[in-house]
């Protein structure tokens, strides 16, 4: 899901960087002090998740976990994803420094959107309903991310990538299922044991 260096055009890179910087500032303002350790933990999870890889046909996909970050952190998912992506770029060579902003937007915007959808009318949910919503948020965040990635590629180079979006979505069906399962399970567990962590205070 990481866009590599040298694929996007300069206006898209600049736009992505500016959007990302603004969203990170908003996220840091909205992150309450007592949630900073949780944000750090989710950052570590996001950082490592990209190394868990699922073989799909000839290609392979990896977990993203941006939906889970969004559901638990709301806007604060942006700084968390930014730090994790920066480290992935520096240490693993996924993506790159110039495309960092674009990649943050591609993974952060779905996180915040899914968080809003997840928290709409949340107070009345049972753990099972919360888990189901979490699963939808996890799968949906990946689908939205692919949409944004395709949009960024299309803005940079014209129509060349549009026909691919169908196959790309299809190739990511397993990762959507895996994301949905992991996010749903974690949210279900939290809704049963620590419902306060799911409180919509951050959106």
């Amino acid at each position: 899901m990481h866009i590599s260096e040298g694929v996007l055009s300069v206006p898209v890179l600049a736009g992505g960087a500016m959007l990302a910087a603004g969203a990170i500032a908003v996220g840091l303002k909205k992150l309450p002090d007592e949630r900073i350790p949780q944000a750090g933990m989710l950052c570590a999870m996001f950082f490592v998740a990209s190394l868990i890889h699922l073989p799909v046909g000839v290609s392979a996909v990896h977990l993203v976990l941006n939906g889970l970050c969004g559901v638990l952190l709301g806007w604060a998912a942006f700084p968390v994803i930014a730090v994790a992506l920066l480290l992935q770029a520096l240490l693993f060579g996924f993506g790159g420094l110039s495309v960092l902003g674009a990649n943050i937007v591609v993974m952060g915007v779905p996180a915040v959107l899914c968080s809003c959808l997840f928290h709409a009318g949340f107070s009345t949910l049972t753990p099972h309903q919360a888990g189901l919503r979490g699963a939808l948020a996890g799968g949906g965040a990946v689908a939205l991310g692919i949409g944004l990635m395709t949009l960024a590629l299309w803005l940079s180079s014209g129509t060349a990538y549009w026909p691919l979006i169908g196959t790309v979505l299809l190739a990511h069906l397993p990762v959507m299922a895996a994301e949905a399962a992991v996010t749903g399970a974690v949210v279900f567990l939290l809704a049963r044991t620590r419902p306060t962590l799911l409180a919509p205070a951050l959106t």
Binding site: L54, A185, F188
Partner: peptide
């Protein structure tokens, strides 16, 4: 409840925990 995420993680691990998908 704690067994569910554990099971998910173990399933994913069994499918093949390896390195991710960057082109070299």
């Amino acid at each position: 409840p704690w067994r569910i995420p554990l099971a998910v993680v173990l399933t994913i691990g069994a499918v093949g925990a390896g390195w991710a998908h960057g082109l070299r």
